[in-house]
Design a protein around this nucleic acid. Structure first.
Length: 261
DNA sequence: ATGTCAGACAACGTCTGA
């Protein structure tokens, strides 16, 4: 079975590329992030024409996740256990955002996650990020089944080797010790970081900023991660760097993983 | 590194977020 994760940075803007990519790579299950559509406006018909069932968790302008599957979708669950919300300074209340959902596809319990960015270390959004990761851990702990995979845009580079230049990263988010400790805490549940092959260079980065020619200089980060338990046997994993090339790409490349059941 | 995107709102530019 082939599973994949991709932050598409708007499924509407990316639809032609997404459809081409589905036809070429032929994944069985795809976790999407930053769909930036509501459940009602997700292009389910276009994706469905390729044989995929769709489950979405989106509200519109920002965030949003989805699972596409051609091996069935059951037991959908949206949101985390006691999920924290974000409260901007000018807001009266904190509100939760559509950043996580799970479903059982082809005998594997699959979660797609879009971890909050954090903005800057010490920013309220950074505290939100850490609280959100704690809720993710609690959710995963309660959800662990025989075959389990959580994948998505974690907005954390697990080690300094996963960043082109650790000293240049924005506001030191993505590389801070508390963020990395949150990843380690997830692994402590029995999950393994499935590190993909790079298709070019020796660095399996998954994200390159749109600006300043970062992609062509290979100044990127590995922040799109696949965490699987031991019941999942990985036979191959790669970053589909080709999907970051050309006209109108997302700023993230997909991670594609082949597993034996 | 801060050079690009995307979406919403009401435009034909400005804001927010990444």
């Amino acid at each position: 079975m082939r599973i994949a994760t991709w932050n598409v940075n708007s499924v509407t803007a990316r639809l032609p590329r997404l459809l081409d990519w589905l036809g070429t790579v032929e994944p069985d299950v795809v976790c999407l992030q930053e769909i930036k559509t509501s459940d009602e406006t997700f292009p389910s018909d276009a994706v469905g024409a390729l044989g995929y069932e769709v489950a979405t968790h989106g509200t519109g302008r920002w965030n949003g996740v989805a699972i596409l599957s051609r091996v069935g979708i059951a037991d959908e669950r949206r949101g985390l256990v006691d999920e924290p919300g974000y409260q901007p300074e000018d807001a009266m209340f904190a509100s939760t955002e559509p950043r996580a959902m799970g479903a059982t596809c082809g005998g594997v319990r699959v979660w797609t996650v879009y971890v909050p960015n954090g903005r800057e270390v010490g920013h309220p959004h950074y505290e939100y990020k850490l609280a959100w990761l704690a809720a993710l851990r609690a959710t995963v702990a309660a959800e662990l089944t025989e075959r389990f995979v959580v994948m998505g845009d974690f907005n954390i580079a697990p080690t300094n080797d996963d960043v082109w230049d650790a000293s240049a990263v924005h506001g030191a988010t993505h590389i801070s010790e508390p963020e990395r400790a949150a990843l380690a805490s997830l692994r402590d549940l029995g999950l393994t970081d499935v590190v993909p092959r790079a298709l070019k260079y020796d660095t399996p980065y998954t994200y390159w900023d749109y600006r300043a020619g970062m992609f062509h200089k290979n100044m990127g980060m590995r922040i799109d991660l696949v965490y699987a338990n031991d019941a999942v046997t990985v036979t191959d994993a790669y970053v589909d760097r080709d999907a970051r090339k050309g006209t109108g790409p997302s700023d993230h490349a997909p991670v594609v993983v082949d597993i034996d059941l």
